[in-house]
Simulated assay, not measured.
Amino acid sequence: MKKRILFLISNLETGGVSKSMVSLLNTIDRQKYDVSLWIASPHGVLFSQIPKEVKIFSNQRITALFQGFTGCIYLLKQGCFFLFLGNLFRMFLTKVSKAWAGRLLAWLMPAIGDGEFDLIVDYNGQQQLYYMVNKLKGKRKVTFFHSDYSQWPYYYTADKKYFPKVDAIFTISPHCVEVLKEWFPKQADKIHLMENITSPILVNRLAEESFNNPWREGAVKLVTVGHVTDTKGSHWAIEAAHILKERGIDVHWAFVGAVGDVSRYAKMIEQWNLQDNIALLGITSNPYPYIKSADIFVHPSQFEGKSIALDEAKLLCKPIVVTNFSTVHDQFQDGVNGSVCEMNPVAIANAIEMLIRNENLREKYIGYLKKNRADNTSEIDKIYELID
């Protein structure tokens, strides 16, 4: 009999956690394991990339609980008055305590699944962790935290009650491991490293697919992949583009990802007359042709756990400019495999300009990345070890 594994995730939009989940599901040995996916909101541009052998568990009431006031209206129309009132209260409670709101959301979600699993893996944390512990049947249960906990401690009062109830806690970089151990010293023996899986074969295959070239001919082609938000440093990037233009450097910068505040960023672009220098492309299920075709990959984020987009850019051997967030040195050594700069528009512009003007430095990065391509699909063994 195949061992049964259930993964939990909130959605499959283009964020790093979702991309990592899809890579994991495509890597796991589905001939040996019966793999299921519990998904709160069964949609997203990556949903089509789930292998057909993976069984999907979803429930419209759970989806509605994740949809704010729109979901509340749906619950009311369906006659789910208890869930309607509970979710309405939970939404207001979020303003007071995310931890208590997360626990209430987990309590409101109905239990769905298919009997007992050999292993249940909560891939999101927070409310999915509390739901897994309280309502799902599994011989072993593990959870993931995909970021630097010191930058995202909002659920601490709940996590400290639930982390003791799982068999293992995974996070995605050495720095994130150390931070989790500092916050949860009593659980230190349970805290382990499991990197986000990035498959070179999958990335390189998808990078060969056709795409609509967004760049203006003759300009230096820059690309950034990820949500367009201040958290990801998008405001710095737009100002950096302005600085480069003022210096007479012709760049055309493509941003691939959902735009958090379209009117605000459009206003910034218009204010600095950057309509011919910046393209906000929105969401795509396949950003890899854009990365492959670009001259320079820029990642101006304020903080990350361990960025999948950066791992993908490294696999495609792009010269990279990245800001000095807390975990950056888990992936980069400045001047060796990328240019690490400070978190401000001038520093970002300076690093980009240096790469544009210094062909030897670009070739150095490309050569290093070609010689040190990492295939970390063996990280899946850490899941197997929990169940075999």
Rank of each mutant, 00 (worst) to 15 (best):
I269K: 11
K19P: 00
T143H: 01
V346I: 15
E359I: 11
K19E: 01
N59E: 07
T143R: 03
N360C: 12
C72Y: 00
T327L: 01
K32F: 06
W107T: 08
G113Y: 10
G282V: 11
R30Q: 10
H299N: 05
V220F: 14
A294V: 02
K3I: 04
L355G: 11
L222M: 10
K165P: 09
I73P: 13
A349Q: 03
T229V: 09
G335M: 07
Y365A: 04
S10W: 00
K95T: 14
L24D: 00
K135H: 11
M132D: 11
N124M: 15
G102L: 04
L25F: 05
A237E: 07
G367D: 07
N277W: 05
G233S: 10
N277D: 13
D250C: 11
E270I: 02
S48L: 09
F66Q: 10
G233N: 07
D295W: 01
E239I: 15
N344M: 06
Q31A: 14
N204Q: 15
F145C: 03
N277Q: 12
V22K: 00
D34S: 15
R362L: 06
L108E: 06
S48G: 08
E239G: 09
L8I: 12
L310F: 02
I120A: 13
A258V: 14
E195M: 14
G71V: 10
F66E: 12
R264Y: 15
K190E: 05
A351E: 05
K52D: 09
L104H: 02
K95Q: 12
G44N: 02
Q128P: 03
I269A: 14
L24Y: 01
I366K: 15
F89D: 06
C72K: 01
L85Y: 09
A279D: 02
L104Y: 04
D159G: 09
E304P: 03
Q187D: 04
N324I: 14
V262D: 11
L105F: 13
V328F: 01
V328D: 01
Y265C: 07
K165G: 05
S97E: 08
G338M: 03
Y123R: 03
E246G: 08
T27L: 05
F145K: 06
I356A: 14
K77S: 12
L244C: 01
T63F: 07
A349L: 09
A374N: 12
R140I: 11
T157C: 15
N286M: 02
G79D: 03
R264I: 14
A40Q: 05
F81H: 10
G257K: 09
K190M: 08
V220G: 02
V179C: 13
W38S: 12
L8D: 04
D381T: 13
Q128W: 00
E208I: 09
G79C: 08
K19A: 05
P200V: 11
Y290G: 06
N134R: 08
Q331L: 05
R90W: 06
A294F: 06
K55R: 15
N26L: 08
E178N: 13
Q60V: 12
I348D: 04
A219M: 11
K370F: 07
K160V: 13
I366P: 08
K55V: 10
L46G: 00
D250V: 13
F57Q: 00
Q127D: 12
L136E: 03
E217C: 03
S147T: 07
P185S: 01
E178T: 06
N324R: 15
S307K: 00
G260W: 07
G233H: 06
K95A: 13
D29L: 13
L280D: 07
Y33T: 03
Q78Y: 00
S58Y: 12
V321I: 15
L46S: 00
